[in-house]
Amino acid sequence: MTFEKQFHETATDRPFPLEGVRILDFSHVLSGPHCTMLLGDLGAEVIKVERPAVGDENRRMRQFQGRSEKDQDYFYPMNRNKKSIVLNLKDPEDLARAITLSKSADVVVENFTPGAMKKLGLDYKSLSRENPSLIYCSISGYGQTGPYRNRKAYDSIIQAVAGVMSITGESDGPPLRSGLMFADLSGAMYGFSSILVSLYAREKTGKGNYIDLSMADALLSLYSTNAAEYLAIGKVPSRAGSENPGRSPTGSYQCKDDRFVQIMGGSNALWPNFCTALGKPELIDDPRFSSNDLRIENRKTLRKILSPLFRQKPALEWVDRLSEVGLPIAPINSLADAMDDPHFKFRQMELPLEHPHSGRIRTINNPFRFSSYETWRSSPPPLLGEHDDDY
């Protein structure tokens, strides 16, 4: 039984929580479009403003093998549930059209270089004169103020400057970029939540709001417990690979079928069950490993003992066996494995859509599950300028 069948009650006359909210979206590439896609998923009307002929840069990214020129595969994952109009913002008539649209918008989102929208007269100060309840979100690499505001910013650059690469990778290896676009996506998530907060506040005050969202700030704020030791005693966090520096045993282990599992076995309460399930009860009272602190101190020795044990069984067998005794463990899935995982299938984390050019396309669903609202729409990513006649 899916969440919708079990919990959905539709206790409102609006099927989606953001039904009736209009978003004027000037953003492109990743951070802004992902933010506005989530708003669209939850019912907002998202009007995506694109450049003539070329549109969003992701429409022009390289084609994958076997795909046609009409398949805009980089564009699809973050642009469902939107309407596309084409405006040349350097043309006075099109610029006037954009300004007119802003008067009926609840939210404007943009992620241009700081100052670009002001030159066009599309900045918050200009638009809010005619629309004082407007919520305006600017997402940029470093924010609208500060010494780095005009620097070019890509995801890996933000990961570097915010310190994330310094704690990513093996302890004896070089700093690594995270495989996910964490800088762009943290900007998108904080932009999304800032807009929701502003909409909520406007319900009480009637006033609009300007949001200056820096991807660098957003990523730095995610340090959380990774920063605890530094903030307390000044010790800088370092790379630890797949291990958790504060617990042992943790990390990834290769299994008989060459798949890896990730374990989190540092709890003193779980240690006896862990050893028993591994078939090594003698480790329970081994003086080198009898507490988490001792296991951290003797981490390398413990790993040498555990590694050949994990090689004795396939990954999923270890997952079942250790899960039964309460140990946090999971297979290290590829994206294909994750998309085919029965849990994510049950949670409906793949959202197939019918696209007029590409036919059936696969997208990854949002994580929202509400009892009183529908939690996703199923409108495919728009063609360039598909909705020009609607606005």
Rank of each mutant, 00 (worst) to 15 (best):
E4S: 15
E9A: 15
R14F: 04
H34F: 13
V46K: 02
A53C: 07
D56Q: 08
G66A: 05
Y76D: 07
P77L: 11
K82I: 02
I85C: 06
K90L: 06
A96K: 04
S102A: 15
K103L: 02
A105D: 02
E110S: 01
T113Q: 12
L122T: 03
Y124Q: 01
S128K: 06
L134I: 05
G143H: 09
D155Q: 04
D155T: 04
A162V: 09
S166L: 08
L176Y: 06
L180T: 12
A183C: 13
L185M: 12
G187Y: 06
G187S: 08
S198Q: 00
K204V: 06
I211G: 00
D212E: 12
L220P: 01
S224M: 10
I233K: 11
S252D: 14
R259L: 10
C275G: 03
L278C: 12
S291D: 08
D293Q: 14
K300E: 13
L302D: 06
L306P: 00
F310T: 08
A315V: 01
E317Y: 01
W318R: 01
V319E: 03
D320T: 15
A330P: 02
I332S: 04
S334I: 10
L335R: 10
A336Y: 09
F346D: 14
E350I: 15
E350S: 15
G359P: 09
T363Y: 02
I364N: 15
N365F: 10
S372N: 13
R377S: 05
P381H: 03
P381N: 05
L384E: 09
D388Q: 12
D388A: 12
